[in-house]
Design a protein around this nucleic acid. Structure first.
Lengths: 196, 196
DNA sequence: AAATATATTGAACAGTGTTCAAAATATAAA
DNA sequence: TTTATATTTTGAACACTGTTCAATATATTT
């Protein structure tokens, strides 16, 4: 029973790793049952002994990527001055991560979760990431009376919507037209939202 | 030559109408070459005598939908008081349109344009729509010294990013969880961006 | 070594976009 | 009107997609 479970988790891991690699390198459009199975070293039919769907498998990657993004952002902002300065750094690093892996952005924000069970969980996992990353610094600002709890809530929401929109427009519509222009827009937006 | 062109435009129109109907009723996922051709009353192969791709055909719909959305918003905000009040009404009506036709939002903001020629044109068409709808009222505000040209530019951008993000999160991630909550968030966001 | 249980697999089905040569239709010339 | 030519329409075919299932191969137990 235990031996079996270990082996099962191992094979599952092979498929998950293959999917994650494929998603990072080739993007969501290249994630197909046969491509995943080829990379994992199994037949495409084997996949269905470990996952009920390909969607089921793909959305298992969300948890891993969420953690990876969290670590990516944290490592880059640990030593930054708390408060507004660090909030800005966190949001920029967060966007940087998705710019680096557009396939993960597609998975997180564009791909339809259809009507599969556990959909709510996955959605909440995604939408709560930025909030979680910023939580400490919002509290810091509120504690020092730099803004009220209500103001923090408004800014928090505005920054979530704005960054999602910025990334959507840049990654899917090339707006703005260059990465430099994008970074400029992102900086201006964050600054305008954080100020007073 | 002229007679031929008229007939060609007519058949093209059949395919475009079929695609638009399908997109509005069933959504982008149901837009397939065979579904379109069935609705248009032709074989799927005929489509390729009038359009080089299915993407080519689909993105021809963007122009029509852009105009439809423009009219939808204008008709609902013509009689509103100019300035901040009408800006808010315009942005809300703009979002309302996409809530009504999620397939059109997918087409406008989620679907990849790949590397097809004319992509830049289509992208600009999409990203300039909200700006065009709001132009008169931003000018109104700047003319009356309610805000500087620079401030208007910042708010303009923030509202474009925010509405795109709000729609992405609500339509793809059900965040917030209900339409009422979404409308509340949208209103709060717009108010917070427009105020001085 | 034989019997049983488990894991892996390819064939098959219905769907996708696209190409191409054959068939149907419309136009031109006799 | 009949024949010849040009144009439009079309289904078969190919390569891909996700998914199911019975057959095969492997591992475990007797």
């Amino acid at each position: 029973m235990n031996k079996k479970e270990i082996q099962e988790q191992r094979v599952k891991g092979y498929f998950i790793t293959a999917t994650k690699d494929l998603l990072k390198s080739e993007g969501l459009k290249s994630v197909s049952v046969r491509n995943i199975a080829d990379r994992a070293g199994y037949s495409f039919a084997t996949l269905y002994n470990y996952f009920k769907d390909v969607k089921d498998l793909v959305f298992l990657c969300v948890k891993d990527f969420r953690e990876e993004c969290r670590e990516y952002v944290e490592r880059r902002t640990m030593t930054t001055t708390p408060g507004n300065k660090r909030l800005k750094a966190i949001i920029l690093a967060y966007m940087e991560y998705f710019i680096q892996y557009p396939g993960i952005f597609d998975l997180f924000f564009a791909e339809k979760l259809s009507d599969i069970s556990g959909k709510g969980d996955t959605s909440a996992l995604i939408t709560s990431l930025l909030e979680e990353l910023c939580a400490t610094d919002w509290d810091y600002c509120v504690d020092r009376r730099m803004l009220t709890s209500r103001e923090a809530g408004l800014k928090k929401a505005a920054l979530l919507y704005g960054t999602t929109g910025l990334l959507t427009l840049y990654l899917n519509r090339r707006h703005p037209g260059s990465y430099d222009a994008f970074l400029k827009q992102a900086t201006h937006f964050i600054d305008s939202q954080l100020k007073s």
